[in-house]
Computed example of a mutant assay.
Amino acid sequence: MKTLVWFLFGVAGGFVVAHFMNKDPRGHEILADVDARITEFTDRIADAYREQESRFAGLVEDARGAAAETVANAKAAASDAADAASETARKLTD
């Protein structure tokens, strides 16, 4: 509980210091620079996330296509096997 109080005190103190810094032109410049760097960082992270997301989407689509092809091949093989078994049964009964 004591740690939480100190944490909240530090956050509140940071807001107060930032408010006073923002009033001074040099402080305002520093805060604007920090804000620009944070924005640049978050933009880079967002771009990297979108790039990875598109890569995964491509991999999933490739896997989906391969699975569909495998299912189609399995159906064809099962159909061929059923036809062969049916043909064999017909020959045995004749």
Rank of each mutant, 00 (worst) to 15 (best):
D43R: 12
A36G: 10
E40D: 05
G14H: 06
G27H: 00
A57Y: 12
D83S: 03
G13D: 12
R64D: 12
D62Y: 11
T93L: 06
G13I: 10
G65K: 04
V71Y: 12
H28K: 14
E61P: 12
F7L: 10
V34E: 02
A76V: 02
G10L: 09
K2G: 13
A77I: 03
E61M: 15
E87C: 11
E61T: 05
F41C: 03
R44I: 13
L31C: 01
A68C: 08
L8D: 08
D33V: 01
F15E: 12
D62H: 14
T42F: 05
A82T: 01
A12D: 12
V71K: 09
G27L: 00
M1N: 13
T42S: 14
E69V: 09
D94W: 03
S86C: 07
D24V: 01
I45R: 08
R64T: 07
I38K: 13
A89E: 13
D33E: 05
N73I: 06
A76R: 02
T3F: 10
V11G: 06
V34C: 08
K75C: 13
A18S: 15
S54M: 07
G58S: 14
A81C: 03
A36D: 08
A32D: 03
A89C: 12
N22T: 10
D47G: 07
D80G: 11
F20T: 06
S54K: 05
R50W: 10
P25E: 02
F41T: 07
E51D: 04
T39G: 02
M21K: 00
L31A: 01
G14Y: 03
L31T: 00
P25W: 01
A68Q: 08
A66E: 14
I30C: 00
F15C: 14
A82L: 02
L31Q: 00
K2Q: 12
A76E: 04
D24A: 02
A85G: 06
D80K: 09
K91Y: 11
I30H: 00
A81M: 04
A36H: 08
F20I: 15
A77P: 00
M1V: 13
G27Y: 00
D94F: 15
V34T: 09
F56G: 14
E40Q: 09
A66W: 15
S54N: 10
A68F: 05
A89I: 13
A82R: 01
A46Q: 04
K2H: 11
A78S: 06
A82E: 01
V34L: 06
D62M: 14
A67C: 05
D35Y: 15
V34H: 01
A66L: 08
D35W: 09
A77R: 07
N22E: 06
T42N: 05
G14P: 00
E87N: 11
V17A: 11
K2I: 15
V11M: 15
A66S: 03
I38W: 13
A68E: 13
A57H: 08
A89R: 03
E29R: 08
L31G: 00
F7M: 14
A12L: 06
A81Y: 03
H28W: 10
K91T: 14
D94N: 09
A18M: 04
I38E: 10
A77T: 11
E87G: 04
R26W: 08
D35A: 15
G65L: 12
E87I: 08
D62R: 08
R64P: 06
Q52M: 07
R55Y: 11
R90L: 04
A48T: 07
R50P: 00
F15G: 08
A18Q: 04
D43C: 06
A57Q: 14
E61Q: 07
G65E: 15
